[in-house]
């Protein structure tokens, strides 16, 4: 009886693992689909924030440059995470 119970538990754990794998794969596929807009979104966000700080500190383009650089890095990081 105990062996049967162990077997039942192992089957249910295996099923649960399989289900989580399916969900993970689905999420990864969606991340891949949405990667392009992540890049565009990052660049727009970087530009807006950079422009805000440039106006705040009366600088010409240093913050825009920094934030756009950070935006590109963040978008590549997002791509790396979704591929991983």
């Amino acid at each position: 009886m105990e062996k049967l119970n162990n077997l039942k538990q192992k089957i249910s754990e295996h099923k649960h693992r399989q289900e989580s794998k399916v969900v993970e794969t689905k999420n990864k596929n969606f991340s891949a689909i949405t990667v392009s807009s992540e890049i565009i979104g990052a660049v727009i966000f970087g530009f807006i924030i950079g422009n805000f700080f440039d106006n705040l500190f009366n600088t010409r383009f240093i913050f825009k440059l920094l934030m756009l650089l950070l935006a590109m890095m963040a978008s590549f990081y997002t791509i790396y995470k979704s591929i991983k």
């Binding site: 979104g41 935006a71 963040a74 990081y77």
Partner: peptide, 23 residues
């Protein structure tokens, strides 16, 4: 570096979400 990138990516989420649907 990772913390900065993660925070940046977190704030980019709503921008990307809105642009994706709108565009």
């Amino acid at each position: 570096l990772i913390v900065v990138l993660e925070i940046f990516a977190y704030f980019v989420r709503p921008v990307a979400l809105s642009i994706r649907l709108g565009a």
